[in-house]
Every structure is written in structure tokens, then in C-alpha cells.
Design a protein around this nucleic acid. Structure first.
Length: 578
RNA sequence: GCGGGUGUGGUCUAGCGGUAGGACCUGAGCCUUCCAAGCUCAUAGCCCGGGUUCGAAUCCCGGCACCCGCACCA
């Protein structure tokens, strides 16, 4: 087994990428802090992602609360969906999902049963431990959401959000109006989410407090195309559809366009975001050879999803891990929030042609009915409206007809009721938009980026390790060194440091041999080091050293900044410098 | 949550009942004109809490964390 994970955790702790949280008081598993370098790396990844979704796709960004009151999660389905009824075997101590154990003995949804009822079922049907046949213990609930209260005393029950998405859904009406009542539109949110996992492991890959970057695209239910699909249609995707997983068939490499045509991916828009996400991950610096798109099996699909593809990345130690999920949530979320809150969360969709609706309506004539029937008039009017207009019209042609009330009958004549034909023009209808959700785990992307970027090689006399981060992703952009610890060189170096530090993330280091200082920067992936040597004092030139090759170029001081700008914006290649 | 393993400076490790030693790293200095050089000095450690013992890093119990397997991962 490779020790990349161990190496990375070592570097992370030593150099300030990732630390266990509140370690001095005894850390808790599933919690990690980011040190200065980790924080910068995180920000750079986020910025890149936002650049795609906000600048390129034109999405809006919002920031909603991390604590939300209980009804939000009753509506979203997380309260029941996240709540597991567990039971432990008294003999072998293994834990099981109690509701799964009694599934075959019941007719109703196990979710709807209380723990006591499940316990009774277990007893009545003599359900034993599937492992050892032992007696099962008490049934208890475990909810993956962190619970809290708003306000003093018992307060209002609330939960820490298990995903950022709900904060967007509950704001649908505001967002819809913000977008001037038109579909489609997209909204993003980045931020923390919380899940009280039973037993998190694997470092930042599975945390109890983690960070997400989510986009929610609100579309018309029947329009799951994307206007820019042609821009990604040739993009090759490495797909792992349900069929291939079940039949153990391996991947399909296929263009986005063909995948839609062959109906492997359910809709153009889903396919668009798969390809779009691939570009982002590639641009962040992940090794695209170690990325695949795996379709969720029906049994693992979330309660809200109708189709879902995970973007997975390959790790040395943990195999394939989920980096992002792109799912078609249908109208599940808006519908549920609307039902629970009683608010309408719909969009108005105009018909292409307004519909003319012709209708016969019964209009009770209260002027006559009122004085004649007094307090019974209302009941009669209600009853009249329920009648078939055509039938009544016919009967009235014979002057009157008999209306049956609950306990009596009344004779109604043509003066007491009007039967009319009305025409109504309907311009459109209220619909629940469907939601396409590309959802990314930042922490996992960060870990995978570190792993994919981690390299070891020989340089000069010794071994070194480095991260070949892209310059714009690397936590530190530049390092500035005086070759020797001499006053004249130091003064020059400090001057250059101050100049560059206005625009870039720069470190200054004069400690140790020059070789050692290069290695220090290599280890954290600083793309370029600038060294001030004795030649600088003579002709105002400095050297730029490239991380990956270890090679150096000499540039004039007055061209340094523009050269650096060009290198960072990819206008120039390092090897093309003189 | 269950079973197994591990826990010594920042990192890697020696010590395995007599009161912690090394290497690397880091810092100060000397030396040094471009890739972890050398020398001197310094900082810094037995995961936490109980127990056994004259004495515990070492043995026992409990907790915590990490690793492996199982379960869980909407």
C-alpha cells in the first residue's frame, strides 16, 4: 500500500495545510482545521470554481444560514430520511438498521413506524441478529443532523444544515423575482454543512463539518437542454453507467453528445454540467486520468434525486472517492417546501398560444333566492353550483326542476338561476421548476488535488518532494531570496519582496543555504522563486527559478513584474524566457 | 458502534520498571557566489485520566485520537 496519504498528512501538519481540530483538548474525529496554506489553497479552489459558475455561467451567489428551523428539514425530507432506527445485538454487539430488519414483515413504509412499534415487530416476528442469531436490543434513533435550539429554554428546535442546498430552495420566491420571473436561472452557494457521521475516517475526505460548493439550476420541466451544449458536445467523458456497474463491464469513453443521443445520460443539461464540471476540475489541476463519472444505482440514490452522477477521483489509499454529485432533483424540493409551508413556490409559464376555455357556469340568482328561501338560500346556491349545467338548462326549458337537498327537495325555476356560457383566456400555468444540482465537496477536492499534485524526484544531490500546483492555485505564488545573507543583497531582496507582495502572495526567506530554501518552497508547491545575487548589484537583473524543472532564467529587474504577470496569466511559457 | 493494531520533541524513531537518547526539521552564529554541504550553540517530547509500585514512557483499567476490517455514509 502506498503511503501517499501518510506523506500528505505529514506535510499538512508540518507546513500548515491541515491540522486536527482542537487537538490540545483532545480532537474529535471528523473535524479538521485548515492552516494558513490550507486556507489559501481552499480559497484558490473556491475562486476558480466560482469563476466558472458565476462569471462563465452567469449564476448568482447567495449566502444563507447554517442553522435552520425544524420545519425546513421536515419539508426537505432530511428529518425522516436522515433518521435511522438502530438496534444492537446483545450477543455480538453488531449494530443494524432496525427498519431494514423488519422490512419483510410489514406493509407500510418503515419510516412511519415509531421505535417502539419496530421493537414490537421484532419481538412478534422473532427477528434475530443476522450475524449470529442473537437477541436484539432496544431500538433507538440516530439522526445524522446536529440538533440545536433557537432561543432560551426549550426554544425552537433547529438543526445545522446537512447541505447548503436547502438555503437556496427556501428562498425560491425571492430568487425567482430577482431573476425577473424567468426561467432558467442558476444560483450558487459555498459554505459549511454538518453531518454527525457515525464513524468518520479518512481525514478530510469524510468530515462532520465540511464545506460545499453547490449550484442549483432552476429549469422548466420539459426543457432540459442547454443553450451552450454545442460548446461541450465533443468533450470526452469516462462514464460508468448503472448497466456497466451491474454487469461488471468497465467504463465507456464517449463524447457528451453521443452519451445524450444514446440516452446514457438522461438529459442534455445533466450532460452539460458533467462536461462543464470536468473542465473545472481539470482547470483546478486534478489529474483527469483519475476522474470518472459514475451513475448512482437506484438503491443508492438520495430521496430527492431522479438521476444522479457522481464525479469520482482516484486516490492511492482509498480508491475512488466522490468529489461531486450532479443530480436531477426534479420538482421534489420545491414541491415539498410548498406543501409544508403552504406557500406557492412556482413559476408562471406562458402557453405558446393562450388557451380559450369555454365553460357553462351556473349562477344562482340571489336576488330571488334570498327573499324566497331565507336562511336556506346559501345551501341551495351551493348545491346548485354542483349541478351539471347542461342538464339543468334542459330541465329549465320545462320551466322548473327539482333540486334535492339533504333532507328535502326544492323546486327551482328559471328566474332563480342563470345558466351562462363564459369564455376565459388562460395565458399560462403555474409550474414547479425542476432543479439540476451540481454539488461539490471542497475538502475532498483539496485532498485529491494535493494527492494528484504530489511528486517526488531527484534534483541536484538529493531527493525532493513537491506539489506541481498550477501557479494560480498554489497557496504561495512567489518566494524572494537574497543569495547570501549580506546586507547589500538583503536590501535589494526586501525591496523586490515589497514590490511583488502588493500583487502576489510572496514569502521572503534568507535563512539557510539557497538549496535548502528552494526545497522549502518546493515542498509546498511555490511555482517560482526569485533570487537576488551579486549580478543583481551590477546589472539590476534577478533570476527566476521554476519549481518543476528547477531551471533558472535571468530577467531584468524592470521587466520582472510584467514577466511574472505573463507567467501567471499563461501569456508566456517559462521555457520561452531568454 | 463492534473487532484488531498503534500512540515518545514539529517529523521519523531508540528506550520496554530505576526517572528520556538520536536523526531530521526549526532558530541563533560561523562558513558559504545557486539546489536539503560543514561546524558550534539553542528550542522542543513520553496522548489524557486513574490504578499497581519505593519508583511507570514501560505493567493494568478507562478515555481520546489515528490506522486496518465490519457496519454506516441520506
Amino acid at each position: 500500500m502506498s503511503d501517499t496519504y501518510k506523506d500528505l498528512m505529514d506535510i499538512s501538519k508540518r507546513r500548515g495545510f491541515i491540522w486536527p481540530s482542537f487537538e490540545i483538548h483532545g480532537s474529535a474525529s471528523g473535524f479538521y482545521d485548515y492552516g494558513p496554506l490550507g486556507k489559501k489553497l481552499l480559497d484558490n479552489i473556491k475562486e476558480k470554481w466560482k469563476n466558472y459558475y458565476i462569471q462563465k455561467e452567469g449564476f448568482e451567489e447567495v449566502k444563507s444560514t447554517t442553522i435552520m428551523s425544524k420545519p425546513v428539514f421536515e419539508a426537505s425530507g432530511h428529518l425522516s430520511g436522515f433518521e435511522d432506527a438502530l438496534t444492537q445485538c446483545k450477543e455480538c454487539n453488531n449494530s443494524f438498521r432496525a427498519d431494514h430488519l423488519i422490512e419483510e414483515h410489514i406493509e407500510v413504509e418503515p419510516d412511519s413506524l415509531s421505535n417502539k412499534k419496530i421493537e414490537q415487530k421484532i419481538e412478534n416476528h422473532n427477528v434475530r441478529c443476522p450475524e449470529c442469531g442473537g437477541t436484539l436490543g432496544e431500538v433507538y434513533s440516530f439522526n445524522l443532523m446536529f440538533k440545536t435550539n433557537i432561543g432560551p429554554g426549550k426554544g425552537r428546535a433547529a438543526y445545522l444544515r446537512p447541505e447548503t442546498a436547502q438555503g437556496i430552495f427556501v428562498n425560491f420566491n425571492y430568487l425567482y423575482k430577482y431573476n425577473r420571473k424567468s426561467l432558467p436561472f442558476g444560483v450558487v452557494q459555498t459554505g459549511r454543512a454538518y453531518r454527525n457521521e457515525i464513524s468518520p475516517r479518512k481525514g478530510v475526505i469524510r468530515m462532520r463539518e465540511f464545506q460545499q460548493m453547490e449550484a442549483e439550476v432552476f429549469v422548466e420541466p420539459n426543457e432540459k437542454n442547454h443553450p451552450n451544449f454545442s460548446k461541450v458536445e465533443k468533450e470526452e467523458l469516462r462514464l460508468f453507467p448503472i448497466k456497466n456497474q451491474k454487469e461488471d463491464k468497465g467504463y465507456i469513453n464517449i463524447s457528451t453528445k453521443k452519451a445524450v443521443e444514446k440516452n446514457i445520460i438522461g438529459s442534455e443539461i445533466l450532460a452539460y454540467y458533467l462536461a462543464f464540471s470536468k473542465r473545472i476540475l481539470k482547470d483546478i489541476g486534478l489529474n483527469i486520468q483519475k476522474i470518472r463519472f459514475r451513475q448512482h444505482l437506484p438503491e443508492e440514490r438520495a430521496h430527492y434525486a431522479s438521476d444522479c452522477w457522481d464525479i469520482e477521483g482516484e486516490t492511492d489509499r482509498f480508491g475512488w472517492i466522490e468529489l461531486a454529485g450532479i443530480s436531477d432533483r426534479g420538482d421534489y424540493d420545491l414541491k415539498k417546501h410548498a406543501e409544508k409551508s403552504g406557500e406557492s413556490l412556482t413559476a408562471f409559464k406562458e402557453f405558446e398560444e393562450p388557451k380559450k376555455l369555454e365553460k357553462w357556469v351556473i349562477e344562482p340568482n340571489m336576488d330571488v333566492l334570498g327573499p324566497k328561501h331565507k336562511q336556506k338560500a346559501d345551501i341551495i346556491a351551493e348545491k346548485l353550483k354542483e349541478q351539471d349545467p347542461q342538464k339543468i338548462k334542459k330541465e329549465l326549458e320545462n320551466n322548473s326542476f327539482i333540486l334535492e337537498l339533504d333532507e328535502e327537495t326544492v323546486e327551482i325555476n328559471s328566474e332563480e338561476v342563470n345558466i351562462q356560457k363564459t369564455t376565459k383566456t388562460i395565458k399560462g400555468e403555474n409550474i414547479f421548476p425542476h432543479i439540476i444540482e451540481p454539488s461539490f465537496g471542497i475538502d475532498r477536492i483539496l485532498y485529491l488535488l494535493m494527492e494528484h499534485s504530489y511528486k517526488k524526484d531527484k534534483l541536484g544531490e538529493g531527493q525532493r518532494s513537491y506539489f506541481n500546483f498550477k501557479p494560480e492555485i498554489s497557496p504561495i505564488d512567489l518566494a524572494v531570496f537574497p543569495l547570501m545573507k549580506e546586507e547589500e543583497l538583503k536590501l535589494e531582496a526586501e525591496k523586490i519582496y515589497e514590490e511583488l507582495n502588493k500583487e502576489y502572495e510572496v514569502v521572503y526567506d534568507e535563512n539557510g543555504s539557497i538549496g535548502k530554501r528552494y526545497r522549502r518552497q518546493d515542498e509546498i508547491g511555490t511555482p517560482y522563486c526569485i533570487t537576488i545575487d551579486y549580478e543583481t548589484l551590477e546589472d539590476d537583473s534577478v533570476t527566476i527559478r521554476q519549481l518543476t524543472s528547477g531551471k533558472q532564467k535571468r530577467v531584468e529587474y524592470k521587466e520582472l513584474k510584467s514577466t511574472i504577470n505573463d507567467l501567471f496569466s499563461n501569456k508566456k511559457n517559462f521555457k520561452d524566457l531568454k
